[in-house]
Amino acid sequence: MSAALSVNPFLRLWSGYLRLVARRPALGQILPFVPLVALWAGVVEAGLFPRAFFPGPVDVVRSFVDLTWKGILPAYLEDSVVRLAVGAAAGILTGIPLGLLVGLNATAHRALWPILLFFQAIGDIAWLPLLIIWFGFGLETMTFVIVYTVLFPIVLNTVLGVRSIPLDMHRAAQSLGAPKWRIVAEVVIPGALPNIITGLRNGLGYGWRALIAAEMIVGTSGVGFMMFDARRAGSVVEILLGMIILGLLWYAVDALILAPLERATGRRWGLVAQ
């Protein structure tokens, strides 16, 4: 490399980008999509594929406005989000206590651990046929699938977290005079928290996919249903819209719920989750 002090224009541009991104990290997450969307629009405008088969960003935005105006999209979105929230809440409320029990009690661990692994392996979606027979095509089926999906990662990670707390910390709490239940409240739960949140992240990631699948297979509403319904009608635009909305929704869950939780626990304490 030469020692010349002149900098080529591309480097200037790049340095400008890096400085901007350093100052506003959010832009670093958004700007890379600009060339991608431009490329997408370019391919569509070039007419390489039939437009009905491969619509462009403008078509997707138009369909977004249209469906929002009609109120279909907001209603479906609400259905999906509520299902996910209810399922996640139920999964958390049963998963953490169960995880604590299995993590703290040797007998419970010996008896339940293989069963937990096995049921996790069966996978949520494989339950669908049986659930349809039990509950029909409805809300119960979907709720069951989501709770089931969210539950296992939380339980398994809680157990992992509880068992990774150093023995010395139990001893320290004991010797400082803490009774058993206080050790659980003050040592075990905070110590396992980073793992619990990792479990929540995995669980929501899987639960999210399960919800989409369930909505496609048994649904009568929701974003997954919208996409599958669009597929039946051959409307690629609405499928793409659904995919983009799913992606954005996950970003929102990540940025508003998961990331702050992780920041507040693991990173703050210097514990590394996972």
């Binding site: 480097l11 340095s15 400085r19």
Partner: peptide, 14 residues
């Protein structure tokens, strides 16, 4: 021996 480099964050040579 000498070394100057372009700091992209500072936007100048150091």
């Amino acid at each position: 021996l000498s070394k100057t480099y372009f700091d992209p964050y500072a936007g100048k040579h150091v």
